[in-house]
Simulated scan of single mutants.
Amino acid sequence: MSEITPDLVRHLGVLARIQLTDEEVERLTGQLDVIVDNIAKVSEVATPDVAATSHPIPLENVFRPDVPQAPLTQQQALQNAPEAEDGRFVVTAILGEEQ
C-alpha cells in the first residue's frame, strides 16, 4: 500500500506554503511514493557493519607545516601592483564613490 497519498501531498503543500493544482498533486504523489520506496530499499541493505560514506574515494587534506616566517615588506607587497601611491594599492572605485 502506498505511503504517500494525495491528501498527504496537499498537506505538505500547505505546510510549505505552495499552492498545488490537482495535476501537480497527482504527479507529486507518484514521484514522492517512488522516492520513499527507494529510500526504504536502501535502508533494508544498510546494516551496522557497512560504514557510512560521503565520498567513494577516501580523501585527505595535505597541508604544509605551519612555520612562522617573516612578513612581506611594504615594497614587496606592492611590487606587482598595477598602480600604487603613498605605499598603498590604487584601485578603481566600484560603487561610484569618488574619493
Results as ranks from 00 to 15, higher is better:
V62N: 09
P6K: 05
P65L: 07
E98Q: 05
N61A: 14
D49L: 00
P56S: 12
V25L: 08
R88S: 05
L8I: 06
L59D: 04
D66W: 06
V67I: 10
M1P: 09
R64Q: 14
L72S: 07
E83R: 15
K41N: 14
V50M: 15
Q75S: 12
H11I: 02
A40W: 09
A70W: 00
A52W: 02
M1W: 04
I57S: 08
I94E: 15
G87A: 12
T47M: 11
T73A: 01
I18C: 00
Q74L: 07
R64I: 02
H11G: 05
Q76T: 00
P56Y: 07
V50N: 12
T47N: 13
E97S: 11
N61Q: 08
T21W: 04
L8W: 06
V9E: 00
T5L: 05
L59Q: 10
V67P: 00
P65S: 09
H11Q: 14
P56D: 14
E26W: 10
V14G: 03
R17M: 02
G87F: 13
G96D: 05
A84N: 10
E85N: 10
L28P: 13
Q75M: 02
V42R: 14
L78I: 04
V36T: 10
R17C: 06
A70V: 06
T92L: 13
V90I: 13
E83P: 07
S54L: 11
Q99R: 12
K41P: 11
P68W: 00
R64C: 07
G96F: 00
L95P: 03
P48R: 09
E60K: 15
P65R: 07
P6D: 02
G13A: 02
V25A: 07
L95V: 12
A40M: 12
G96W: 00
V14E: 09
F63P: 00
A70E: 11
V34F: 07
D66L: 14
I4N: 07
R17F: 01
P6S: 01
E24G: 10
L15W: 11
T92P: 03
H11L: 06
L78R: 01
S54D: 11
V91T: 14
D33S: 15
Q74S: 04
Q75C: 03
D33W: 07
R10K: 04
G87T: 11
A84Y: 02
G13K: 05
I39E: 09
A51S: 14
L32W: 13
F63C: 04
Q75D: 15
A70H: 00
F63W: 03
